[in-house]
Design a protein around this nucleic acid. Structure first.
Length: 170
DNA sequence: AGCAAGATCGGT
DNA sequence: CCGATCTTGCTG
């Protein structure tokens, strides 16, 4: 069953770990690509110096201030599309970066596999016909690891926060 | 207008 | 360790 608005409207530190073990579904060339989400990172508010929202609202990050459940994508290093989900209350910039799927490690590879590009910016996960997240039947066993976020050394103390979550056995 | 750096990855 | 490749946000 597809996740609805309420799931994403909670604080990002609640949403991020609860996205683990959910199924990311993307329609690609007419076929549905379904993968378990195994690793995510939380970015929380303008005060979070690791977040793109640290400069306040800009053209690139404006979607982070929108209603939860929409997608934030951006290009890093001129090559890789990063797939994020906006969370929390409207006006409060929060997002979850999807860093890994079952069998796919690394956010750059996730974007590449799923064919993510600029056209996904602002897509609504609760309504879209080509991308959404589903609850799976049954339970995922194993614990959730909490680790520091990757590639944000410039963020000082904020780089040390353990806002990266991953399923132990993947 | 110009520039340095980037929520990465693959090859040396 | 380094290059790829291009957008972004800051500086002047």
């Amino acid at each position: 069953m597809r996740l609805t608005r309420g799931f994403f409207e909670r604080d990002v530190l609640k949403v991020a770990p609860s996205m683990l073990g959910k199924l990311l579904v993307v329609r690609k060339a007419g076929k549905l690509e379904k993968r378990l989400i195994t690793e995510v990172e939380a970015y929380r508010g303008e005060e979070d110096l690791a977040s793109h929202a640290r400069f306040g609202k800009t053209k690139r990050n404006q979607i982070m201030y929108a209603t939860a459940g929409v997608i934030y994508v951006y290009l890093v290093y001129g090559i890789y599309w990063m797939l994020n989900v906006v969370t929390g209350q409207k006006g409060d910039p929060q997002a979850v970066l999807i860093r890994g799927l079952d069998g796919i490690k690394g956010p750059g590879r996730v974007g590449k596999l799923l064919g993510i590009d600029k056209s996904f910016y602002g897509e609504d996960l609760t309504k879209s016909e080509r991308i959404w997240i589903e609850e799976i039947s049954g339970k995922i066993d194993g614990k959730i690891l909490r680790l520091p976020r990757v590639g944000v050394d410039y963020a000082g103390e904020w780089a040390k926060k353990k806002w990266r979550f991953m399923l132990d056995r993947f």
